[in-house]
Computed example of a mutant assay.
Amino acid sequence: MGEAISDRQVVAVLRPFVRACGPMLDALRESDPFGLQARAKDDLAEVESGLKAKLIHGVTSVKVPGTAAWARMTGYDRSSWWMNRVGRFTALLTSIPGLGGALADRLPVQDALGAASQGLLLCAIAGEYGVTDVGTRVRLIASVLFERDIDPDLAAGKHPEHDEAAEADEAAKLTEELTASEKKHGKATIKAAAGTLWRLGRALYGITEELEKRPHGNILHRAVGMLPIVGAAGDYFGERSGLKKVWRRAHTWLTEHRA
């Protein structure tokens, strides 16, 4: 049995992880990705009734980041959207190692990708509750995934060994594929998002022992996940179940720690 992982080690891994998650999620949340609100405002000024106005109203009523309907949703409802919509995507990517059945489950890949997926969702949920600082997000992830109560000053990087420049550089490396995709295509592609999730998962290898503590599916999900080929299905539903647990724990933690 290896030496116990300290809170300082957990913070050292989670701070660049959180910084890498933050910009991508904040951009998705705060932007008007399709220009729908601006376009609707201009068109509705010219057309007050009729089919065109109804169509515009229908489009801007879709509950996605950047639309008027999204702005009217509560933080609780928006966090639920992240869990259901984005969660399906990340759970699918996380379950792919399950194609190898028990062999893949013996490796740290599944837990690393699963923890990265859950951490990404936690950062998204935190943003919907108005929590944007790295330190608080680190404490949220440590509590929900690893059942650790991290000291606020330690999570905020207030200790002699903290290297701000190195941390920023590590966060930038984790999002290299997203940056390259945005420069080339003007947006983050699915391939770039999948690659970034993989990088985020690898970034958590430094605390592999902690990753086993994260919320998982039930015993049935794990049993199916041990089988070749169909194991992907068991792992997918197991990850979805784990994400639901994460969402419930996050809501409780953020409600209790709201300043």
Rank of each mutant, 00 (worst) to 15 (best):
S143G: 02
G87D: 09
E212K: 15
I190N: 04
L204R: 03
Y236P: 09
T175M: 10
A193I: 11
T94D: 01
E239F: 01
I141M: 04
L14K: 03
R78V: 08
C21H: 03
G2I: 01
R78L: 12
G101W: 09
T60N: 15
A124D: 11
V224Q: 00
D133E: 08
D43T: 15
L211P: 02
L178D: 01
L121K: 06
P215V: 00
R39S: 15
R39G: 13
E177T: 08
W82N: 01
S181L: 05
G98K: 07
L99V: 02
A124S: 04
L243Q: 14
A27E: 14
R72H: 01
E3G: 12
A104S: 15
T252H: 14
L204M: 11
L178S: 07
G234D: 00
R248T: 14
F146D: 05
D32T: 05
T74F: 04
V11H: 06
H162N: 13
R248K: 15
R248A: 14
L92H: 03
A233Q: 10
K52M: 03
V134P: 00
L25C: 01
L243Y: 03
V86Q: 14
R148K: 02
H216P: 01
L204D: 12
Q110T: 14
D7V: 07
K63G: 10
A38K: 07
G75F: 01
Q110N: 14
D133L: 01
I219L: 13
D163L: 01
